[in-house]
């Protein structure tokens, strides 16, 4: 089918990295939120979202990412993005997401920035 989306994660003691693969639309965003909410429920409040394998997003998917950022703010948590295409980074900047969630070039730098 035209939209195949996968989300995986790597959980460490104090943080987790969420990996996406595919188009981040409403369904993709909801799958990311599902994983993030489970992690937050488990007491993991520092998250890296690695979008290296997601080159296309839409504003509905991004709106769900805003919900995740909001939820992390309530728990003094933090979200850092990495692996963004230039256009996705530009889109996040235009929307103002970068005021609340940093963008790092690499996953390693993103983890350091948590």
């Amino acid at each position: 089918m035209i939209n195949q989306f996968a989300v995986t994660m790597r959980k460490e003691s104090e943080y987790a990295v969420i990996y996406t693969d595919g188009y981040i639309n409403n369904l993709g965003g909801e799958k990311i939120a599902e994983v993030a909410n489970t992690l937050i429920g488990d007491g993991i409040y520092k998250l890296v979202l690695n979008l290296e394998k997601s080159t296309v997003v839409n504003s509905i998917g991004i709106s769900i990412l805003i919900e995740i950022i909001e939820k992390l703010q309530e728990t003094n948590g933090k979200l850092v993005f990495c692996g963004l295409t230039k256009t996705i980074a530009k889109t996040f900047t235009i929307m103002g997401l970068t005021q609340f969630a940093a963008i790092s070039d690499t996953e390693e730098l993103a983890i350091q920035g948590l």
Partner: peptide, 19 residues
Amino acid sequence: PNIESKFGNSYKRGWGLML
């Protein structure tokens, strides 16, 4: 839209035309 107004607001969409 602006991001500040989206926090605490259940409606987080409305970005399309601006983008």
